[in-house]
Design a protein around this nucleic acid. Sequence first.
DNA 1: TTAAACTTTGCAATAGTGTTGCACTAACTT
DNA 2: AAGTTAGTGCAACACTATTGCAAAGTTTAA
Lengths: 137, 137
Amino acid sequence: MDNKEIEQKLESKNVKPTAMRTLVYKTLAETGKALSLADLEQRFEKVERSTIFRALKTFEENFIVHPVDDGSGSVKYAVCDDECTCNIHDLHVHFYCTRCGRTRCMKELPIPNIKLPEGYTYDNAQFIINGVCPRCD
Amino acid sequence: MDNKEIEQKLESKNVKPTAMRTLVYKTLAETGKALSLADLEQRFEKVERSTIFRALKTFEENFIVHPVDDGSGSVKYAVCDDECTCNIHDLHVHFYCTRCGRTRCMKELPIPNIKLPEGYTYDNAQFIINGVCPRCD
DNA sequence: TTAAACTTTGCAATAGTGTTGCACTAACTT
DNA sequence: AAGTTAGTGCAACACTATTGCAAAGTTTAA
Ligand SMILES: [Mn+2]
Ligand SMILES: [Mn+2]
Ligand SMILES: [Zn+2]
Ligand SMILES: [Zn+2]
């Protein structure tokens, strides 16, 4: 995915494509995994934590990435599909490998529909499966 | 649940029932909700964070409580059922109310069985539903 | 084209959670 | 009772997340 495409992508979501944002997005898109702030920070050494943090927040607010709290202690972020609005219909299972610490979107596994007891409303959900991934097995 | 019962309960799980442990267990059992270290800390003012922390870890190792990471920023703990061994068969959905911040075990909702792609193994899972609870609605 | 207005970035500070070493005390063993 | 083991309190620390503020960059509009 080249920079032009990324810039168009960000613009289509009403986010101005600055150099930093393009870099952060590119990294997330290319690794194809969910990455934490710390993961990103160490991939490009000289960029400020807070700048990356703010890029991620901006992306999150505009449905460019979605957060994954895999229980590892830091929230990770993964790129959303084009039409994603981060609502119930876009939710999918995430897999956390307890050996390598990698977290993967299982887009092929939508979160199953659960019938809640009377009186509860359902806005959002996280379904994390912990186990060992094929690479580590 | 009186202290005698709690002491027997802890002993049956091979944990020596000290005063602090009994207090922590009692609080978790009586509130019937998942509570964080900070929640517990402020319920009894003069007990050390680290003591509660260690009580919870001991409980967790001995299947007396299970952790719930509801994405609120701090892990919460809830009492296990008697026969629980915290394996796949004991897993259930947790509900996090985004209004009041309360987290509840939905023991009546077991985590649905998911068929993972080839090569993945399944050890454990967390399924958190976010929404509004009946009390806050 | 230049000044004002607005946005983004870097840096430093801060809050909160989780965790550990160490010394002290309580409990248990012989 | 003396020795050994387990539990507690305190202080320190690591790490994640978050924010205020000033400097730098970008956009707008005169
Ligand atoms: Mn995902
Ligand atoms: Mn539970
Ligand atoms: Zn792995
Ligand atoms: Zn509520």
